[in-house]
C-alpha cells in the first residue's frame, strides 16, 4: 500500500507526457469559431466600386464561401492564386469582404491579382469582421444552405486545404 504512494509521481508524469504528445499534434494558434453551426451574422455592406452591394440575404439557400481579405495583408497575396483557382477551375461561388481596407486599395489589389469574387462587400470599420469573429485576415468561412457557418479557416488557404478541407465539405453540403 505504502509503496503504491511512491508510484503516483511517475504515473502522473506519464499521463502528462501523453497529453504533451497529443498537444504536439495540435496547432495552438488556430481558434475554432464561436459561430460554428450557428447562423451567419446578418450584414449589409456597400459594394466595391461600381459593383452591387453584399448582404447576408443575398446568399440565402446557397452553399457559399465568404473570404475576408485586405490589400495590406501580406498572407492574402499568398492565398490569392488559390482563390483564383477556386473561382476559375472549381467554379465555386466566392463572396469577398474587404476588411478594414480603403475601397480604392482593395480595387487596386484585385486589378493587380485578378478578381475571384462574385460580389464584394466593403467592411471599412471592421464591424462585420467582429460579428464573424475575425481576428486576422485572411479568413474563409463556409456557409450552408440554411445560412449556418460550417467552417472557418484562419490564415491563407493552401492547395491542400482546398483539396482536403474545403472541397469535401462543399460536396457533403451538396453544393448545387
Amino acid at each position: 500500500m505504502q509503496r503504491l504512494l511512491f508510484v503516483i509521481p511517475v504515473v502522473l508524469f506519464l499521463g502528462l507526457a501523453a497529453y504533451f504528445g497529443l498537444a504536439l499534434t495540435r496547432d495552438p494558434s488556430t481558434l475554432p469559431s464561436a459561430l460554428i453551426d450557428k447562423p451567419a451574422p446578418a450584414f449589409a455592406l456597400a459594394g466595391l466600386g461600381t459593383k452591387p452591394p453584399l448582404a447576408r440575404d443575398d446568399f440565402a439557400g446557397q452553399v457559399v464561401l465568404v473570404n475576408f481579405f485586405a490589400s495590406w495583408c501580406v498572407p492574402c497575396r499568398a492565398e490569392h492564386p488559390i482563390l483564383m483557382r477556386m473561382a476559375e477551375q472549381e467554379k465555386l461561388t466566392l463572396y469577398g469582404i474587404a476588411y478594414k481596407d480603403r475601397p480604392e486599395d482593395a480595387q487596386r489589389f484585385l486589378t493587380q491579382l485578378g478578381d475571384p469574387y462574385s460580389r464584394i462587400g466593403v467592411d471599412q470599420s471592421g464591424r462585420v469582421g467582429i460579428d464573424f469573429g475575425v481576428y486576422g485576415v485572411p479568413e474563409t468561412y463556409v456557409i450552408d444552405k440554411a445560412g449556418n457557418i460550417r467552417l472557418r479557416h484562419v490564415g491563407p488557404l493552401t492547395a491542400s486545404d482546398l483539396q482536403n478541407e474545403i472541397l469535401p465539405l462543399l460536396k457533403q453540403l451538396g453544393r448545387s
Partner: peptide
C-alpha cells in the same frame, strides 16, 4: 463579445 469570439 463572447458570442463572437468564444470563451477564449
Amino acid at each position: 463579445i463572447t458570442a463572437r469570439y468564444g470563451d477564449f
